[in-house]
């Protein structure tokens, strides 16, 4: 299974202190995203990735080394559930 994020122009982001408010244009829904949800979306911007690909991107590019496979899968499921990430 691969995960796909919306293109950058589909998201409007307001960085607030504790989280980012992200307006998802195709749905009109506002999401409040903290780490690592934001990094997950950033990791998926260039191309869809599978679970291992996201895991690798998080530790290589975003310095999130403590992400466990199970925890990451759970976060991805949440993002899929709210429609920000598409699983295919």
């Amino acid at each position: 299974m691969r995960y796909r994020a919306p293109p950058p122009e589909a998201l409007l982001t307001a960085d607030l202190d504790a989280f980012a408010a992200v307006f998802h244009r195709p749905s009109g829904i506002t999401h409040l995203l903290a780490s690592p949800a934001r990094e997950i979306l950033a990791a998926l911007v260039d191309a869809p990735l599978d679970l291992d690909g996201v895991l690798a991107a998080l530790s290589d590019r975003f310095d999130i080394a403590d992400a466990s496979r199970a925890a990451l899968a759970a976060r991805l499921d949440e993002l899929v559930g709210v429609g920000l990430v598409e699983a295919a």
């Binding site: 409007l12 607030l16 202190d17 504790a18 989280f19 408010a21 307006f23 009109g28 506002t30 409040l32």
Partner: peptide
């Protein structure tokens, strides 16, 4: 600001309808 954002979305009757 983050807390204000949450409080004010709750205090708005048309935040969702106003979209972007």
């Amino acid at each position: 600001a983050s807390e204000s954002f949450v409080r004010l979305t709750q205090a708005s009757t048309n935040y969702v309808a106003m979209g972007e």
